[in-house]
Every structure is written in C-alpha cells, then in structure tokens.
C-alpha cells in the first residue's frame, strides 16, 4: 500500500469546490429552463374518459355485493356486452401507442424537450470535467473501503496501487450528478427535485396501452359471482338492535 498522498490545497480550492458549485448551479438552471419549456398538457377527452370508466368499473367490482342482483346485472351488461358495452374494445381498433405517438407531433415534441434539457447540459459538463480535471485525485474520504469501490470512486485513474479512499475528479462529478437530489429538494421545493436517475426511469416506463386496461377490467367483471351482502347485514343489524334494546 502506498503512503498517504498529500493533496494540494489548490485542488480543493480549484477543483473540488468549483465542481460541486457548478453542478448545483447547472441543476438550478436546468430546472428553470424546463419550467420555461414545459407546455401545459391538454387533457385528451378519450383518455380522461377511459380513466374514469376504469375507476367506476373497479368500484363496481369491489362493492358488487352492496347492490341488488338486478342492478348489478344491468350494470355488468352495460359495461361488458359485446355490441356497445363501455369496456368492450372492438378488435382492430386497439391501436398501438407507437402509432399514436407518431400521429401526434405534440407528444414527440414533449419527449424531445425533456430529453434535450437532460442530455445537453450533461454532455457539456461531462466534456468540461473530462477536459480540465481528468486523471487526478481530487479528494479523500475519511474511511477505508474495499477494492470493489475502485471503479466507482477512481474513474479515470488506472492505478491499482492508490488506496481506494481517494476519489478522482471524474468520480467526484458522478457522485455530484447522482447525489445532489437532496440539496435540490431543499432549494427548489420537494416535488421539483427531479434527478437524472428518476428521469431515466421515466423514459423506460412510458407507452402503456390503455385498451389493455379496459379489457382486463372487462374480464374481471365477467368472472365475478354476484352475492348480495344485504341479507347477512340485515341479520347483523338485528343483533345490534337486540343488544340496543336490552
């Protein structure tokens, strides 16, 4: 193991602190840029209606026992009949979301804006850090770590002899990139702090097929056995009254 490296205080003053400050400032700047570019999303009638429909069908499924059998059957027919039931999706009409996305330029535009506000500043800062600060140790963490952490903390330094508790400047950049979320939530308010990790997750999870939800709900309703809960409740009420009268 090599002896303790002595880090120049100039590194602290000119690399460590400026890097963090720049990352924070960029985060704030990006928040305001995103706020400027955000277009209020117009609600689509069909999507709203489908969401509400699913809610209503779900409550019918959950509370089916509380209405008389006749009412339940009427409602089930209303939702699931094959001709014009609300939950029935005719075959072929189930368009896939991919096609829908291409047909709607607004949607693609929104995505692009989101991506632009994420990718551009990130590439720029990464290039900047790489160009000016690559290849040296910028800080030391005050506790020892196992060698597994080498790739995380010493990105850009290919020396196996340096102790793992030293942090390279490029790694410091990454630590800041992913670790400043708490700070942003302090500065910008709780819900505004969107860090990049979250955004990346959002990218993956979009494009759910709404018609699929409808047909699942329809199947769920179809297999329900209606059992009226009221006669049982009546007996329970009788017991309550008996107790009350006593």
């Amino acid at each position: 193991m090599a002896e303790d490296l002595v880090l120049d205080t100039a590194i602290r003053d000119w690399v460590l602190v400026p890097l963090s400050v720049v990352m924070v400032l960029i985060g704030i700047l990006r928040y305001f840029v995103a706020k400027l570019m955000r277009s209020s999303q117009a609600l689509d009638l069909k999507i709203v209606r489908e969401g509400q429909l699913i809610l209503r069908a779900r409550s019918l499924r959950a509370a089916a026992g509380f209405v008389p059998a006749k009412s339940f059957r009427a409602r089930r027919f209303y939702y699931t009949n094959e001709e014009n039931g609300l939950l029935h999706v005719p075959k072929g009409q189930a368009q896939n979301t991919q096609a829908q996305m291409f047909s709607d330029p607004n949607m693609a535009m929104d995505m692009m804006k989101k991506n632009l506000s994420m990718i551009i500043p990130q590439t720029l800062t990464f290039a900047w850090v790489n160009f000016f600060f690559s290849g040296f140790v910028a800080a030391k963490i005050p506790f020892p770590l196992t060698p597994r952490f080498r790739s995380m903390l010493q990105n850009g330094i290919d020396l196996s002899t340096v102790d793992v508790s030293y942090v390279s400047s490029r790694s410091w950049y990454f630590l800041n990139l992913f670790g400043l979320r708490g700070l942003f939530s302090l500065i910008l308010g709780e819900e505004n702090a969107m860090d990049d990790t979250q955004r990346m997750m959002q990218m993956g999870g979009f494009g759910v097929d709404p018609t699929k939800n409808l047909s699942t709900e329809k199947d769920g309703l179809d297999i329900i056995q209606h059992e009226w809960a009221l006669p049982k409740i009546e007996q329970r009420a009788e017991q309550i009254l008996r107790k009350l009268v006593k």
């Binding site: 006669p231 409740i233 009546e234 009420a237 309550i240």
Partner: peptide, 16 residues
C-alpha cells in the same frame, strides 16, 4: 323488502 334491507344496513353502519 329491499328498502327494509337497506334501512337495516344503515342501522348496521351507524350502530342503531
């Protein structure tokens, strides 16, 4: 008869 059942269930829910 149905109404009676629902009155009973009100009694049940409010504890009489």
């Amino acid at each position: 008869q149905t109404a009676k059942k629902y009155y009973a269930s009100t009694v049940n829910l409010t504890g009489g």
